[in-house]
Structures are given as C-alpha cells and as structure tokens.
Design a protein around this nucleic acid. Structure first.
Lengths: 242, 242
DNA sequence: CTCTCCTAATTAACCAGTTAGTTAGATTAT
DNA sequence: ATAATCTAACTAACTGGTTAATTAGGAGAG
C-alpha cells in the first residue's frame, strides 16, 4: 500500500488537466467520478473542507468525518493524503500562511518609502484576510495553546513565516523613525498591535453580528473597515508634521 | 438525589468561613476532606480548574476528567454543581465577564472627562486581563464560532455584559468628539480595535514567546506593554491640538 | 489495436481507545 | 433522621485511525 502524504507536494502540475468545474466529486448521471479521478482536486477539496471545520469547531472539536463529508470524499482518503488529523491541520496552517506571505513579501521588498510601504503592507494583509475571513479563526484555534508538541509546530511556523516578515517590518519601522516620518515605537509592541487590529475584527465577526445590527462581513462594511484600519494605524504611527 | 446547579448562585456567603489555604481537597494525614466539607470552595476550585483547562485546550479539547483532577475533586462533582460541560463553560464565561464588568463599569460611571475616562477605562481593562492572562484564551476558544446553540449563549453574554459597556463607551466617544478632544471615529470600528490591542497580546503570548527572546508575560514586559497600549490608543484617538 | 497487468486513487466496514455523563451509595453536619 | 456533599465504578456513544478490497487509467506485449 502506498500513501501520498510523504514527500512534499507530489505531482502538483496535474492541477491543469481538467477544465471541468470543481463540482467534482459528486456522482452525476450515474457516471462514477471520484475513482482514479483528480488526485490534486481531492487534496484541495479536503484542505478547503478542513479550513471550514477547523474554523468552526477548533482543532479538537473538528470531526474528521465531517471534513470528509464536506469534501465529498471517503474519510480514509484523509489518511491517504495526510498522516493524521494533526498533519492535516498543519497543512492548513501552511496553506494559510504561505498565501499571506505571497501577498505581503513583494510589498515589503518593493522600493516604496516607509509610509507608503507600511500602508501597502496593511492593505495587502487586510485584503488577504478579508478574502478569507475564516483564516483568523483557523489560526487562533490553536495559536493560543502553549505546551505540548504544538510548540514544535508553532516554532516552525514562526521561523518560516513570521520571523522573515517581522524582520522586514522592523526595518521599515526603523527607516521611518529615522526619517522622522514615524513616531518612535517599540516594534515588539507595535507590530502585534497592527495584526490585532486587522485580524480580530474578522475572528470576532460572529459575536459582532449579534452585537450590531449590520452584517460585519458585508461588502460595504468591509470597505469601511478597511478605510478605518488604514486611518487608525496611520494616526497611531505617523508623526504629526509641525 | 439533589443537585446544586439549578437556582442562581446558592449560598455564596459560605466563602468566608474557612481561613484555611486552598490546598483544600487533598487528603492529608488520613483525614478525609471533601465530604461535606467546603461546598463553595469545591465549586470555586472546579471553576478555577475549568478556566485552566478551557484556556489550554479550548472547549472541545478540554477533558472533564482533567478538570476534576486539577480541582482535586471527583468528576461526578462537576455534574453535581454544573449541568454539563457546556454549562460549566458558561459559568466560566460569566465569571470572566462579571469580573471585567465589576472593574470597568465604575470607571465609566465616574465623573471624569472623556480623555481621562477613556484612559482609566483602558487601564482598568488592561490590568484585569494582565492579572488573568488566561481569560482571553478562554473566551476566544468559543467566541469565534458562529452557528449552533452557541449563538443563544453568545447573545446572552452580549446582552448582559457587552451591550451596556459598549453603550457607555459610545457616549464617552461622542462626548470627546463634541468637545474636540477626540478625532472623529466610528465607534463600531474604534471600540473593537481597542479591545483587540489589549487582548490579542495576551492570547498570542504563547506564540510570541517563541518569536521573541523575552518572556511576554514577565512583570517588566507587561508594564512596558501597558504604557504602550495607553500611548497607542491615545495617539489613535486624541486630536492634535494646533 | 487490444488484451494484461500494474498501480494510484478510492471506498465500505470495522475497531480500539476515549470521553461525557450516570448511578447507586457513602459520609457527615444539623 | 434528613438533606447536603461527595465518591468509586460503570456505561453508552463517539471518534480517530486502520484494513482489506475495489476501481479504472495507463504502459507494455503481442
């Protein structure tokens, strides 16, 4: 028996073969799809379903059966593609953070001036989360626990994704402070606060829906929120010119 | 058989009777404590242990056996004092939020001017969380899930704790904006952002420990963080006088 | 071109360990 | 006694993970 989950990302070019829409897995008209069909589609479907389950119920509360059902796939297939529930969660984390990194690093490596670079960074971060509002919930599901083997995983995530971005942001801050564009702030305090303002709005969206009458995830509301976040951080960071 | 978990807060004055330290329930020297001993102490021990478990593992990941063990109490006693795991979690939420309300509402009802009142509010909020760094994690464990019967509970919590505080804060903001002390902000955006900045630092403490070399919960670090938060919100909210 | 055989992809059925919750009774203060 | 407080032992249901078997696309032989 051969499993697919060892070796990084086997056969990822297969993605382009089928032009069929991702209705995928459903058996329509008696034709039995799903057998020897689209391996990469299956993997993707599982991952997507896992995002939903983990976001909704947390990592311990997530049911592998439910993930399989949502992905229109047999449960054993989860274990064919991923070692176990935990590895699946780790794959989800990688999916989330590599996506963020892809959006954000180009901005940080651009030649913009500190002010503009910071604003572009914020916008890119915000837009990525706004396009995937469940991601903060998925992350915070595990993000908050301290001990155990979680630590090892968290350290990897931190090393691979956070640290490089963090480092570049520190440089932006220092540059801006030197030119006098930015107020003097401690990066260790300021940067997490930026993340907090962007992220918590989305992870708290369910509660906010019960608290306000507006839908916090409606397009207009999100546009407003976006403007606010940029304004808010600007006010907190940019020096007032005399 | 009689259970204690119906009727709100039965016999809560018993708390003051015993001056003994809360080593409590351990059977030391053959004396069998725990039987008809300190009912309110048992309840409190369970609640405290539950806070720890829920913070560490989330609501689904929390093990009732572990809670009982940590409280030095038989598991069945959980079900004597609380209807079920879910009710226990609800009790924990009430514990957390009533504590917060108790600290924060007096400030909001004081006669301070908008600027000072807002700063006092922030300080009170921050200090409460800093004294109980696990609380944000307990809350966010469930705070993020949308559907199901969670909704009913969330609505109760929102109505009972959030809404009154929120309302008072809106008034403070409006007063400050009218006097020109505050910049013009949308409360619906500004207030959650304040919470975000205070709270996320603590719920993310585990990750931050792996990211920075400093312990994010050390006394000095927390003092620094406190100053930063006040400064940060001030910069974002207070109008620059020309 | 087609018949085999190989193998990746997929599934139905199952199992062993766990876990929330229960029961029937014990202990003790009043 | 009687009722409040507490416990050891038990169970019903669930859940992560496994297994053995199945399906069909493709490669090579003829």
């Amino acid at each position: 028996m051969v499993t697919a989950h060892e070796g990084s990302r086997a056969g990822s070019k297969a993605m382009a073969t089928s032009t069929r829409t991702d209705v995928g897995r459903k058996r329509l008209g008696g034709t039995r799809l799903g057998t020897r069909g689209q391996p990469e589609e299956s993997r993707a479907a599982i991952l997507k379903a896992a995002v939903g389950e983990f976001a909704e119920h947390g990592v311990a509360g997530a049911r592998t059966d439910a993930i399989a059902r949502a992905a229109h796939v047999n449960k054993a297939l989860l274990y064919y593609y991923f070692k176990d529930k935990d590895a699946l969660y780790e794959a989800v984390l990688d999916h989330v953070f590599s996506g963020l990194r892809a959006r954000v690093v180009p901005v940080l490596e651009s030649k913009l001036l500190p002010r503009e670079k910071m604003l572009e960074y914020l916008a890119a971060y915000f837009d990525y989360i706004a396009a995937n509002p469940r991601f903060p919930r998925v992350v915070q599901a595990e993000w908050t626990r301290s001990p155990g083997k979680h630590t090892a995983r968290m350290e990897r995530i931190a090393r691979e994704y956070f640290r490089p971005i963090y480092q570049k942001l520190v440089e932006v801050l220092q540059a801006g402070m030197e030119t006098g564009d930015f107020r003097r702030v401690n990066p260790m305090d300021f940067l997490p606060s930026m993340v907090a303002v962007i992220v918590l709005y989305f992870s708290a969206a369910p509660v906010m829906k019960t608290l306000m009458k507006v839908d916090p995830l409606s397009a207009e509301r999100i546009a407003e929120r976006r403007a606010f976040v940029l304004e808010f951080i600007s006010a907190a960071l940019f020096a007032r010119r005399p």
